[in-house]
Simulated assay, not measured.
Amino acid sequence: MFDSKDIALDLRTPCAQVLPYRRSQGGAMSNVTARQCAARWGIGDAAARRILAPLKPIARDTETGAMLYDQAEADAAHNSRPGRGTRNDKTASPMPDEQFEQLVNDDSIPAEHRALWTLLRDGHARIVDALSLDVRDVDLDRREARISYPKKEHEPRSIPLTERTTDLLRQIKGDREDGPLITGAHDRPLSRETAARFARQAGADSIHAFRPRPHQLGTTPRFGAAKVAAREVRVGDTLYWDGREIPVSSVKSVTAPSGAVDVQINLGSDFPIFAAAEEPITIAERQEAE
């Protein structure tokens, strides 16, 4: 039987966003996904994945492919986390390219921090998404990392990996087949607080200085620009992205097992762009069809 607290939690859980809980023969809730945990705990999906990262998944959900965790272990991990801190690491100023290259190429800096920095700079990843990556989320041969639950639903579910990011991730992954991708001392998941503190010690204004742009898309050019959904981008367009104009040489739509559609633009180039199908993209110039 469930007590009133369990019933209240279930009533507050949006039925359209979570899957039914798996129950053992004794009736107790057993296996849950990160999204179910997030709904129960009242936090974001990415934050729930951070909490679940040290745990070993039991299996994958047959319908969505999401990892399943023992609920008792998940709740214990959630209850043992420290209290909320104060965010003081925000900045709007990207780090100069010369300083970034010097830090990333400094072999005296632990590879896990340099890998995180390149995910932010080269892959345009959010910090919480990068730190939430599991080893199984990364395909180093295809040079791609998959985000199961982006911080915002309209954002891309894939992170393109540059050659140097792939090399750094290969170093920190080693021969591991599962578990958190970016780890620190004692193979524990690298926390946001530790990453932010180390970034400041390395000379950055904050961890956000490693990002090439704010969380939103680049500022729209003053003249001759329009926004379209990523699925409407065409070869021959010129995109305005991260303050620069990017000619489009290839466009490919990819459907994930969950049904989400991603658009891969200029795949295989020095500046690939991964976007969700409905994500707004700024077109600086468009060649009209004849």
Rank of each mutant, 00 (worst) to 15 (best):
D262H: 02
L169W: 01
W41N: 09
L116V: 13
L119N: 03
T33D: 12
G83I: 02
A209P: 01
G44N: 10
P110S: 13
R157Y: 01
V128I: 09
D45Q: 11
I283A: 07
T64V: 03
A39C: 08
L120R: 03
S249D: 12
R40N: 00
T118M: 12
A39R: 06
R213E: 14
S158A: 08
E278D: 15
S80K: 08
P14I: 01
R81E: 04
A59P: 05
H124E: 12
L68R: 11
H154D: 02
V104E: 05
D45M: 09
L9M: 09
A230Y: 06
A72G: 03
E278W: 03
P94G: 12
A229W: 00
T219K: 13
G27K: 00
A28F: 13
T165W: 10
P189Q: 09
Y149T: 09
V135A: 11
S258N: 09
K152M: 14
E278S: 09
A72Y: 06
V128Q: 02
M95V: 10
L239F: 08
V248L: 02
W241M: 13
G236M: 12
Q287S: 13
G224A: 14
P247Q: 02
I207L: 15
M95D: 02
Q171W: 03
D141Y: 00
A46Q: 10
T165P: 04
R142L: 15
R231C: 05
Q25C: 03
G83Q: 05
I182F: 08
D242T: 05
D270C: 00
Q102N: 15
A66K: 09
D137K: 01
P160S: 02
D262L: 00
E177F: 00
R50I: 07
M67E: 05
I273Y: 03
L68Q: 10
R143E: 13
E155G: 05
T255F: 00
G83D: 10
R192A: 07
T238N: 10
R136Q: 13
H124N: 14
S269H: 05
S250C: 08
I159H: 05
V263M: 15
E285G: 05
L19G: 00
Q102T: 15
H208K: 13
D205Y: 03
D122G: 12
R200K: 07
A276Q: 04
S132A: 15
P57V: 06
H186A: 06
E73S: 04
V233A: 06
C37H: 04
E63I: 12
A145F: 04
Q216R: 03
E278V: 06
P160T: 02
G179Q: 11
Q36W: 06
P156Q: 03
R222H: 12
R176W: 00
T33F: 13
A226N: 02
A48P: 12
S206G: 15
D175H: 08
A230Q: 05
T183W: 04
A284K: 08
P96Y: 13
G44K: 11
I58Q: 12
V254P: 07
L116H: 11
K252Y: 01
H124A: 12
D89Y: 13
P214A: 11
D167T: 07
